[in-house]
Design a protein around this nucleic acid. Structure first.
Lengths: 339, 339
DNA sequence: ATAGGAAATGACAGCGCTGTCAATTGGCCC
DNA sequence: GGGCCAATTGACAGCGCTGTCATTTCCTAT
């Protein structure tokens, strides 16, 4: 059981061939006779041989690894995105190495350094606000980098995202256009995306001549349903009960919905709610939660396609800043203002 | 920008020392004079040097990597667990390499092979029902393996989990004890854990002399809120409207809650709902969702501790089968039968 | 039957780093 | 001021694999 792992040489001697031949049989079966191939496969199975990627990487200078850095593995927002990356990279023979920054700049720098030590052939990273040091690491790595989820005029390499602020602006404006003036905002975590959305809210409010500071409840804590409930409570306790709320995430919106039910506030008659991201549950809620749908799966698919093209043919997208857009989904949780 | 990555030797020549010294300065700063250390650090920063783990692994035969295999990265069930692993392994200097099987046996075998190629120092894997081939790979790797989430009498190495069937049994029995006889069950995905829970339901029903097949709605599709809503619809459409439902996951329970609201079925007066896992939103729902709370963070923490002990001191837990238990949380979504 | 060439296989070096042991330096005591 | 030991630094080999080129084998066409 605790026997030493077998190596190429072990397989080779069991199959009665040279190590190079085994290596070829495994990587390019067409270069080896069928008979030998079978014999080698048998030896591989018998020894439960698994190639050592470290040695392979060192000899070939290829890792077949794509590094992915996300802000959180807990947050459902990144689930579709990661799935898309898996769906489009694994079948093409790439390994996907996922690291989480847990919304910390320090952890992000560490994650990038860790990743670079693995010699990924490309890096796909959430966000555009990396620290100076992180940027330098990425730039000097010489590896293609795709920054996602947000847009920036100053990408490290390639940028694929959406205008988070604009999405929030439109959501808030939709509430205002429905006649609401006491429009609140709820945000948590306060990472770059959340801050951009707060900006969008403020923009829409000020544009309509409304106070953008009066109905605001935020917390640096992580985004949870409970936080949504509590933040609505905070707003109401402060004597500023809104008639509509823009939530910077669907989880918060769900928390707000439950809190309204608890307090007997009718949605949407007495309270309109709109969230962000179009997480799976939003459409299934009762009433269905309005939201700003972000094309996360599509963004992951495109990122995968871009890095594959660059790696496999050196072909770069014509434009290094790609806007994947968003869709405002107005559902049952929002309604026109009642007298 | 596309310049070649720098190596130890580059750093060494810039700092005017030998490569070995640089290696030591980075790994064991105490073995190098302070002055040199500073000079080397400066060179490292200047060149944006990042050590090559492949070369390091080859030379030292250590990877500082713990392999983690989960069934899904989308499912919130694994989020706390992964967080616990991160919290307890990253600070100790380990890298955590997470792979997802996406509930597929074939992908699980591939993930295990991929992982072994990385020479992890231990493997933590969800579930106890690996295929024969997968078991062989794991056993012959000679690496400590911790199987989690479920219990088995025949572990590969170490087993840390809970009796999924028993949890479901107790949940169902709680509903029966509240006077309900038309007790339904809703399950999705139908992976090993879901099947164990269905078993637990059947056990409780049969024990009470009730039909365990009449109020059953399942789907092989993935676990979503929408699936919960639809499955409740299926039950009712079949003319078997239950008065209580045990859901094999909280997401399904949430879907059932929303569907009840949509259909005007009062919870808990006309319908008791109990879920599984105690996901974050369960306690915040209105009414709060009863559930079988599984100690996922604690399970991750313990798994991390076990592998660290084995790696660092060779010390194995006294028992290779550890039951972490569960807690039945009866909340507002369940109530006694009304006339 | 044999030359000629394609297909299949092998030999060898080296990827970047670290374990091991050897060499050098510096500090301290008498 | 010389000798001794500890602290610091260096030289060298080799981890397991693959790129490259050399060699052998096997056909095919004459």
């Amino acid at each position: 059981m605790r026997r030493k792992r077998s190596t190429l040489a072990d397989v080779a001697s069991l199959a009665g061939v040279s190590a190079v031949t085994v290596s070829r049989a495994l990587r390019r079966p067409d270069m080896v006779s069928a008979k030998l191939h079978d014999r080698i496969q048998a030896a591989v199975r018998e020894l439960a041989y698994v190639p050592d990627v470290a040695a392979s990487r060192l000899a070939s200078n290829r890792t077949h690894t794509i590094g992915v850095i996300v802000s959180s593995l807990t947050n459902g927002v990144f689930a579709d995105y990661i799935n898309a990356l898996h769906d489009n990279l694994l079948p093409a023979g790439y390994q996907v190495l996922i690291l989480s920054t847990r919304y910390s700049e320090a952890e992000e720098e560490k994650a990038i350094a860790t990743l670079l030590g693995q010699h990924p052939e490309a890096i796909i990273i959430v966000g555009v606000d990396q620290s100076e040091h992180a940027r330098r690491l990425l730039e000097s790595s010489g590896v293609p980098v795709v920054q996602t989820f947000q847009l920036t005029d100053n990408p490290i390499d390639i940028n694929l995202g959406l205008d988070q602020e604009q999405g929030a602006y439109e959501a808030t404006k939709a509430l205002i256009d429905l006649g609401h003036t006491r429009v609140g905002v709820i945000a948590s975590r306060l990472d770059a995306r959340a801050r951009a959305r707060l900006e969008g809210y403020s923009h829409a409010m000020r544009e309509a001549g409304l106070d953008d500071t009066k109905w605001r409840a935020t917390t640096p804590e992580q985004t949870t349903v409970m936080a949504g409930s509590r933040l609505l409570g905070d707003l109401i306790k402060a004597g500023n009960q809104p008639e509509a709320v823009f939530c910077c995430d669907d989880l918060l919106a769900l928390g707000v919905l439950f809190e309204c039910q608890r307090r007997g506030i009718k949605v949407p008659n007495q309270m309109s709610i709109i969230g962000y991201n179009n997480l799976e549950f939003a459409a299934s809620a009762e009433p269905p939660l309005a939201t700003v749908a972000t094309p996360r799966y599509e963004m992951g698919r495109m990122a995968a396609e871009i890095v594959r093209k660059i790696i496999e043919s050196g072909e770069r997208p014509p434009n290094n800043k790609i806007d994947v857009g968003y869709t405002l989904e107005l559902r049952g949780s929002v309604g026109r203002r009642r007298a």
